[in-house]
Structures are given as structure tokens and as C-alpha cells.
Simulated scan of single mutants.
Amino acid sequence: MSVSLYYSAHRAAPLTEAESSAIECVVAAHTTSFPYDDEESLYLYELSDDGPEERVAGATKMPSDFDRLMPVLTHLLHSVTELRRVLSDAEWAVHMDDIDIPWDEAEGYSLSGMNERRK
């Protein structure tokens, strides 16, 4: 059974050229720094500005190898955090199958305990 991370942003206004460029920069930076060549990475669907108010959407299948899961998930959530900051006025939904990933204005997206520092 596979688990995937899903991410989407909705708003009435279409993306501006500046926002589209900023999103492309986030995706390019993510791709360059992604830790594993043989795992799925950040993937955004092709969306039409003519369609519904979904402006950004994508999904990534999580690794089945537990040792790779946390680095991949951490990297993806950081990238989705950057995407959200590009489109801060959109309504965002980020979830791993049926588990909602909470948003924290200071920390961004993370699961409980992911950003805690070890003492």
C-alpha cells in the first residue's frame, strides 16, 4: 500500500507572471536539492487558468523505505511551505492521504515533532 503527499492552492485570481516565475524557481531549487534520484519528487499538475480556482496542485508518492521517508517528507514539506509563501493569499490544503498537515506561520508545514530540536 502506498502513501502520497497531496498539496493544492485555491483562489479566484489566476497566477500572475511573477507568481508563476517564483513557483518555477521553487520547483527548480527543490529538484536540484532533492536527496534521492530514484524517488518521486515535488510534482505539480498542469492546470488551466480557465478552469476552477485551483492554482497549484500536485502529489508525491512517499518512499516505502522508512530510512528515506523522513528526509523526503521533510524536503517536500519545506518546498510546499515555500510555494505557500509565494501564494500566501490562497487557500491551501496539504495532506498525506487522510492526515492533514498543519500550517504554522513561523515553521511552515511539518508533522508533530519534525522540527523539534534535540536537547
Rank of each mutant, 00 (worst) to 15 (best):
L69I: 10
E82D: 11
L87M: 06
H75F: 11
E54T: 15
A28K: 05
P71I: 03
E24C: 00
E107I: 00
H30R: 03
R85T: 09
D100T: 10
D49S: 13
A13F: 03
R55K: 15
E116G: 00
Y7L: 06
A59T: 13
E39I: 08
R84W: 11
I23E: 07
E107Q: 07
Y45A: 08
D37M: 08
E46N: 10
C25N: 08
A22L: 02
D100A: 14
A12F: 09
P14S: 15
L42H: 01
Y109P: 00
S2W: 03
S64T: 15
G108L: 02
Y36A: 09
W103N: 11
P35M: 10
E17Y: 09
L15I: 10
L111P: 00
A93D: 12
S79M: 03
V27A: 05
S41F: 02
M1H: 09
W92P: 00
A18V: 09
P14E: 14
E40V: 04
R118T: 12
W92K: 05
S8M: 11
L42V: 08
S8Q: 14
L83A: 11
Y43F: 11
A28Q: 05
G113S: 02
A22H: 01
Y109C: 03
G51N: 12
L69T: 13
S4G: 13
E107V: 01
R118G: 13
Y7F: 15
E39A: 06
D104G: 02
S88Q: 10
H78I: 09
M62T: 10
L83C: 06
P14A: 15
H30E: 11
V72L: 08
S20P: 01
A93K: 12
S112L: 12
P102R: 13
A106F: 02
A93H: 11
A13V: 05
A59V: 13
K61L: 12
V56I: 15
S48G: 12
M114T: 04
S64N: 14
E46W: 07
L47N: 09
E91D: 14
L42I: 14
A106W: 00
N115A: 07
A59S: 15
R55P: 02
A59N: 14
L47T: 06
E53N: 13
L111S: 02
H95I: 02
T31M: 04
N115V: 10
P35R: 06
V94I: 07
Y7P: 00
L15Q: 06
D97Q: 11
S112Q: 04
L47K: 08
L69M: 14
S64R: 15
A9L: 04
A12L: 12
D98P: 00
L5Q: 07
H95Q: 14
T32D: 08
D50V: 15
A12S: 12
R85L: 10
E39T: 03
K119F: 12
C25Q: 08
M1L: 10
L15A: 07
K119I: 07
R84C: 14
Y109R: 05
M96G: 06
E107P: 00
A13G: 01
E24L: 04
